[in-house]
Nucleic acid binder design. Sequence first.
DNA 1: ATCATATAGTTCAATATCAAACTATATGGC
DNA 2: GCCATATAGTTTGATATTGAACTATATGAT
Lengths: 155, 155
Amino acid sequence: MATRYDGTKAEVSALNAFIALQRAADSVEAATQAEIARSGLTQSRFGVLEALLHLGPLTPKELAGKLLRSKGNLTLVIENLEREGLTSREPSKEDGRSFTVNLTAKGRKRIASMFPKHAKLITSALSSLSSSEQEDLRRLCRKLGKAQTKGGGHD
Amino acid sequence: MATRYDGTKAEVSALNAFIALQRAADSVEAATQAEIARSGLTQSRFGVLEALLHLGPLTPKELAGKLLRSKGNLTLVIENLEREGLTSREPSKEDGRSFTVNLTAKGRKRIASMFPKHAKLITSALSSLSSSEQEDLRRLCRKLGKAQTKGGGHD
DNA sequence: ATCATATAGTTCAATATCAAACTATATGGC
DNA sequence: GCCATATAGTTTGATATTGAACTATATGAT
């Protein structure tokens, strides 16, 4: 954003990196948008299904943590997934307040069938970076993510 | 997200980088959230004011391009900013359909006063990366953004 | 057992977000 | 000038998103 900001060098460097980071994340996500919509899903619903596929059944709270969204948001998205028969809830045996969100057969089939195409789109979106650049990007981003998981947890 | 996906090496590499990218962007943005809310703004409104401060008056379409949001979204956010007296619209002389969004004195004062604190928060959020790592991150992200600006423009 | 406190999930009101349909103005041939 | 087409901004309906207040259950101390 042509950050003409008269701050310290450290600030200018951080702001420039931040702006680039936001735009890159937005633009890669945009690259997946059309395909997800074409399958009748939204980014949120896709995100939940993807998490359940790769990690197994999770509680709403766990999903909120993985996806960096609020609990209230998850309540809605889970509701919408259930309405479409893509997930079901299984009451927790240890905790009467909680339940796990499970993929239905239909939900599993849906997300599993989408994933290969999704992976190809992401791969293509990142193809301007070499394999080792992708590694670098991952390393730098993880360093950020880890350092930042302080108090601002989405609860 | 522990991407256990049985794809090619290239796919796994791209997916891992993508996931890290999304989470890093989300978590740095979250670091700015509280302060922006404390000033009575939202991320969207802050984004528009920030763009106007650094780039000068812009049309809704230009703002949509800069911020990677839809035109319809900008219509609403601009409306909300006007309601609070932070921006005003100036009819374009060349194009009767358009107008530029301008900071009011109040709007300029508000965003300018927030920026130093904002810059410090971003700097702190990125402080786990050295200056040269921040440069690397920026370079990698820009390479992505540029490559990806194909047809998926938010119009 | 009781009670204070913490935690899981829900609800609510406000705002954001998109795609698609729509309105109004521009622009380029003719 | 007229018309086809393109473009700027708005509207609409559906969904997402948050923070805060709320309900219900859990947990730990006594």
